[in-house]
Amino acid sequence: MNRRRFIKDTVLLAALATPFQPWKGIHSDEKTISSIDGTLSADQGLIDTNIHLFPYPFRELKFGNTNNLLTKLKKHNVTEAWAGSFYSLFHKNIDHINSLLAEECRTKGEGMLIPFGTVNPVFPDWEEDLRRCHERYEMPGIRLYPGYHGYTLDNDHFVCLLQEASARNLLIQIAIDIQDERMQHPRVDVEAVDVTPLADLLKDLPSARVQLVNPFRHVRGERLKSMIEETDVRFEISNLDNTAAIELILKGEHPYVSGVPFPAERLLFGSHMPYFPLENGLFKFMESALSQDEAEAIMYRNASEFKEYT
């Protein structure tokens, strides 16, 4: 058959009915545990530690509108979401975008959206931005974007920020990346954050509560091993990939860091909504063999305890 004709014919066929035999389920052994959905209750809901509000600079996102985003989160039993602002990436008037974020969460968040403002420690008067995040907007933490803001983690100003934020008992989220660097806009060349200096920095600052968001594309191998073994840093899971990713990383069998078990209490659910679909984070729990305790810890308990810890 002529293949062009074939394409047209198949479109018609597909529109009518599926013309092939249904699957006989030969490898679907209903007795295997992997074929049975679990019983984990949704009563506790989910805490999503990594969402953003406001427009993404390079694309209109379908859940970029706060109301739509909130509806989507609620549909999947997310009960709390830690929100940064996409305005943080390029705006210079940091306080203004922090105030917008706080206001958006307050007026539209229905108590679910927790604002995480940003601070750029290489800008003048960043200490005042930090103070306002804490005192004026009553934010529980800040989200930093070193790749977009142009500093590395051995920068003296960053070290000062780490100290000041810790003194205020603020959570410190560090965004390792936002987008796969291979598909960045040609006019934007943002490097992923190198976490190497963090292990030594945090030895001198044991009270710091640090979480890496979008970490796993770049924090792998020795860097990840160092973070696991030498720090108490928490990790958000939206870009933890590989088959059965959560199961394998807990067992120390994940290719990102083979041979080093990852403590379950240091993984926190995050979706990277609205840039990623929320379903990406959720399906990870379906795909991994996890105890109920492990699943509950990663889905909400770890985040809750991390935020409340003083």
Binding site: T18, P22, W23, G25, S28, I33, S34, S35, I36, D37, G38, T39, L40, S41, A42, L46, K75, H76, N77, E247, E279, L282, F283, F285, M286, S288, A289, L290, S291, Q292, D293, E294, A295
Partner: peptide, 25 residues
Amino acid sequence: MNKSFAFNPGKFGLPTREELVELRI
């Protein structure tokens, strides 16, 4: 520790395994 796919996708707004099977992926 019982590792038994504790997560129930249907309770979190995802398709269940049976619904995925029905999609003939």
